[in-house]
């Protein structure tokens, strides 16, 4: 029993335990479906071995019903597991809206994390236990995949788009974190620590690693230093949309589409401005593709997002 427990990897969340349960039952099904084959093969090979006396009369060569049944019955059993696995997956794929948000950027060959308060870390991820946490993933170069075995989850970080991964860690502790998608030379060095802390410890950690400002505040600085404000501030001379209240709003585009201004839209507006032009504005916004890193862009997104909240608060 002890040996088994040590061979079985730590499960640090309720979701992870659910996956284990599913996997365990599925393995039982694997045994049930394969045992008849293994047993009968050996039994027949012994009983009907050439040269051995056995009743070999009237062998049957086909039987519709038998064949249909051994196609359908295993399939129905498996279908049950399909329902189970898919519903669990839907939970995994639907982050709660009020989850604590952490940004992650995969980069050859390291993981960079940014907390809302501006705290930054490399190859280490500190999270509070008992709280829903959502990691927004971006990639600076190739595809990476953030894998936390103790949580039984992983998600690819795909260049050009944001993906998400959420969890609710239960057991405080330090676990292994890795990149699961082959990403070049030092792929196997792209590992780190996933550190789940009690809420009080987490607050202490945040305070100790306090930075000069929140992520949004850093975004605001960038907004000025990169020259965005030159066009986007209310007193700018050029005709550019105000970004206040933009986040989460529907935006009519020049080509007639209407899109919601989410993280991805704001990212693309900065890095690929020509791909989505807001209706009624000139095509003058330059691309910041080679100027800003994904981390900078994440800060700017946080800033634009904070503007939305600010303008809501300012409403009469």
């Amino acid at each position: 029993m002890n040996d088994f427990a040590s061979a079985w990897p730590d499960a640090a969340s309720a979701y992870a335990s659910n996956v284990d349960l599913l996997a365990l039952f599925f393995m039982a099904l694997v045994v049930i479906l394969s045992a008849p084959v293994f047993i009968l093969m050996v039994v027949f090979a012994t009983k009907y071995r050439r040269g051995k006396n056995a009743d070999r009369t009237e062998p049957i060569n086909r039987n519709m019903w038998v064949e249909v049944s051994w196609a359908v019955v295993p399939f129905l059993l498996i279908l049950f597991f399909y329902g189970w696995a898919t519903s669990l997956f839907i939970v995994h794929a639907s982050p709660p809206s009020d989850a604590l948000e952490i940004k992650a950027v995969g980069k050859q060959w390291m993981w960079k994390f940014q907390h809302a308060g501006g705290q930054r870390e490399i190859n280490e991820l500190h999270v509070p236990v008992g709280k829903d946490v959502k990691v927004v993933l971006a990639s600076q170069d190739v595809i990476h995949s953030l894998y936390i075995p103790a949580l039984r989850i992983k998600q690819d970080a795909v260049p050009g788009r944001y993906t998400e991964l959420w969890f609710n860690a239960e057991k405080p502790g330090t676990y292994w974190l890795a990149c699961a998608e082959f990403c070049g030379t030092d792929h196997s060095a792209m590992t780190g620590k996933f550190i789940a802390l009690r809420p009080a410890d987490y607050s202490r950690w945040l305070a100790e690693n306090g930075s000069d400002g929140s992520l949004a505040a850093e975004g605001e600085k960038l907004f000025v230093s990169s020259g965005c404000s030159g066009c986007h501030s209310p007193d700018a001379k050029v005709h550019a949309p105000s970004l206040a209240g933009l986040y989460g709003r529907p935006v009519p585009l020049e080509n007639g589409d209407v899109v919601t201004a989410d993280d991805q839209y704001i990212r693309d507006s900065i890095l690929l401005p020509q791909s989505q032009i807001a209706a009624g504005y000139p095509h003058i916004m330059p691309t910041f593709e080679n100027i800003l890193s994904e981390e900078d862009v994440l800060k700017l997104v946080a800033y634009v997002k904070s503007l939305a909240k600010a303008s809501e608060e300012n409403l009469p």
């Binding site: 659910n18 996956v19 599913l22 996997a23 599925f26 393995m27 694997v30 498996i78 597991f81 399909y82 189970w84 696995a85 898919t86 669990l88 997956f89 995994h92 995949s145 894998y147 075995p149 039984r152 989850i153 992983k154 699961a180 998608e181 082959f182």
Partner: peptide, 16 residues
Amino acid sequence: TGLAVAMLAIDVHLHD
């Protein structure tokens, strides 16, 4: 075991 990794929630853990 191929069926196991065809199961969504199991594959999220076992993929790669």
